[in-house]
Structures are given as C-alpha cells and as structure tokens.
C-alpha cells in the first residue's frame, strides 16, 4: 500500500453510465486529459482513466470507468458497478429518448451497484441549445424527486465538466469523511473497551459456534 507512484489520500471509483452516444467518453477525456474528439468511436466494453483533485487539502484520486452504452455490452459492464462509490448518469439534452432511459439506468444501478452509491444526473451536450429536447427544469425536478444531484455539461465547450466531477467527488468525500468521524474505522490506538480479565469471558459463544460447524 502506498507504493504506487502517485500519492493520494482517497481513491474513489466512479462509473460513467448512460445511453450510447450521449458523450460519456468525451466527458471522461475532457476531465482527465482536457481533450475532445468530434469523431470519437463507440466504446468497446469499458475504458478507464484517472485524475487526482484536491478537496479540503486532501488528494482525491478518481478512478473513472467509462462503460459502453450499447445494449450488447450490458452483461460485461454491469460487473464494473461493483465497488463504485459514485456514478455519473449521462443523457443527451438533444435526444429525449436518452433522458427517458435514465430510469432504466437507475434500475441497473439499483440491481448491480452498492446501495449507498452517489449518483449525479448529467445532461450533456448543453452547447446544442437550438436542438434541446429535454428542458432543464424537467430534469432538475426528476433529479430532486430521485435524490440525485443534477448538472448540465458540455464536453465540447468544457462547460461544467470540471464542476460536475468536482461536485460528485466532493460529495463522496464529505460522506466518507463524516462516516469516519462517526465511527472511525482506523486509528493509531485500539479502543480500550472491554478491558476484562481474560478468564472472565464466557466461553459459551465460541463453543456453540464450534458445534454448529463441526457437525
């Protein structure tokens, strides 16, 4: 542990999901490499990139998994939800169908991901103003109803891409660090509870366990 070349305080796994063609790969490349490719190819299976950001003086390394939106990869991609602490559920503001399918993607997450996963609804391609098919308010209401955070982005002109990732990573960080304060999973000291003498402890418990298992 800690032997990797880059140092970080937290490592968060985040998945990018949503219909094929909504711009997941370009969101990823915009965030991790500040690149955008108009002729980007359809993703095969899953791709992967990382970037570290600072929150409250801590280094957070985001491990972002970009999954293929096409139906044919569904069996493979759902395996990647496991262990993810965040999900960016992306739709295309110019294609209403991709917004309608958001419910389906939420179901996918419910079925395969951790129940505490932080989900952010992302309306991408906000640069296509004249083609807008999903009103911002509608999506916002939907997100609130489903307790998701919401943002509109454009990977093409970079609008809000940085903010979207910053927000979700910060949200995850808050949850994780609060959890640690509530019940610290690690520390330099072992909590000195139950300092009873060794011979006083009841032996019933371990005996019963043993009986169950041996038979």
């Amino acid at each position: 542990m800690g032997t990797r070349d880059d140092e970080y305080d937290y490592l968060f796994k985040v998945v990018l999901i949503g219909d094929s063609g909504v711009g997941k790969s370009n969101l990823l490349s915009r965030f991790t490499r500040n690149e955008f490719n108009l002729e980007s190819k359809s993703t095969i299976g899953v791709e992967f990139a990382t970037r570290s950001i600072q929150v409250d003086g801590k280094t957070i390394k985001a491990q972002i998994w970009d999954t293929a939106g096409q139906e044919r990869y569904r069996a493979i991609t759902s395996a990647y939800y496991r262990g993810a602490v965040g999900a960016l559920l992306v739709y295309d503001i110019a294609k209403h169908l991709t917004y309608e399918n958001v419910e389906r993607w939420l179901r996918e997450l419910r079925d395969h991901a951790d129940q505490n996963i932080v989900i952010m609804l992302v309306g991408n391609k906000s640069d296509l103003r004249h083609l807008r098919a999903v009103p911002t308010d509608e999506a916002k209401t939907f997100a609130e109803r489903n307790s998701l955070s919401f943002i509109e982005t454009s990977a093409l002109d970079s609008t809000n891409v940085e903010t979207a990732f910053q927000n979700i990573l910060t949200e995850i960080y808050r949850i994780v660090s609060q959890k640690q304060i509530r019940d610290p999973p690690e520390g330099d000291l072992i909590r000195p509870q139950n300092v009873e003498p060794i011979d006083v402890k009841p032996t019933v418990n371990s005996d019963s366990v043993r009986k169950q298992c041996c038979q």
Binding site: V46, I76, A79
Partner: peptide, 17 residues
C-alpha cells in the same frame, strides 16, 4: 467467472480498441 473477469474484459477491450 463474469465478476472476476472484469479486468480481463477490459484488457481484451483495449486490444480491440
């Protein structure tokens, strides 16, 4: 096993890519 092969699939996908 599908769950344990996610990295394998990613390697294959990278070659295909």
């Amino acid at each position: 096993r599908l769950d344990d092969d996610q990295y394998t699939h990613m390697v294959v996908a990278s070659f295909l890519h």
